[in-house]
Amino acid sequence: MGWADAADCVLEPQGEGRVVAVADVHSFRLEDGREVRLAGIERAGTDGVSGRAALSAIAGGRDVTLHGEADMPDRYGRQAAFVFVTGSEHSVQSELLRRGEVLVSTDIADKNCAAALAAAEATARQGKLGIWGETTAIKNAESPGDILAAIGQFTLVEGRVLSVRQAGATTYLNFGRNWTQDFAATISRRVIPAFENAGLGPKSLENRRIRVRGVVSSRGGPRIELFRVGQIEVLGGK
């Protein structure tokens, strides 16, 4: 599937308006005062100047339509939506992903939309555009120090799962031998069935190279908690 399939992100119409101010790479204000947060994407790293400029170039001063499952604002008063500039068949999210300015989020319920955004991100990654021109765009699981530097940030980490261990209600995908210092991805017992149903049961991932995405935290070593199947990509054979 190519990134041109981004039109699959057309969900229920949730309004329209003109963009009058861009706050950052994934939020803007409409002429009527509504604040909109672009659904399905996350800021890459901490440098938001380039991303804000890209969003301004794509949507600034333009008429847009909003699509989504609901128009209820989030806790910050922003309406989360997939956004299309009038006359374009591609979502603003896909345009940003195709330029390598943002990362695909993990909370996209619509499978067609998730696949379209993943394809747009892959296009930028293969072309080494934007953030993908940097060697640090994907963290190496064997370098926990580099991952710890991204605490609180949405990050991609890649490496081989050396062991899978359960402790209480948590399953650990360990990417190193030192469990207290090396990187691990964690899965709560309550969401294990979803991973198993998707063919991603924790034990099946042992000794596999995978890429995980999520917000980095620290509990001894760096951690990313896996809530959804979309946070894991299997990269190759054993």
Rank of each mutant, 00 (worst) to 15 (best):
G2Q: 07
A6E: 06
A6N: 14
D8Y: 09
C9M: 04
V10C: 07
P13K: 11
V20A: 01
S27T: 07
F28H: 00
F28V: 00
R29L: 14
E31L: 14
E31A: 15
S50M: 12
A53P: 10
L55S: 05
S56K: 14
A57P: 00
A59C: 09
G68A: 13
G77D: 11
G77H: 08
R78Y: 08
T86N: 13
G87S: 07
H90Y: 06
S94C: 04
I108Q: 06
N112Y: 09
E121T: 01
A124I: 03
R125I: 00
G130E: 03
W132L: 13
E134K: 13
T135V: 14
A137Q: 04
N140P: 07
A141N: 00
S143H: 11
S143Q: 15
P144R: 04
G145D: 12
L148D: 07
A149G: 11
A149K: 14
A150F: 06
F154I: 03
L156H: 05
E158R: 15
G159L: 00
R160M: 12
L162I: 08
L162H: 04
V164Y: 05
R165V: 15
Q166T: 14
A169Q: 13
L173Q: 03
G176W: 06
F195G: 04
E196N: 10
G199I: 14
P202E: 05
P202Y: 04
S204T: 09
S204P: 04
L205H: 01
R208Q: 14
R211T: 05
V215T: 15
R219L: 15
P222S: 05
F227G: 12
V229L: 09
E233M: 12
L235S: 04
L235P: 03
G237T: 10
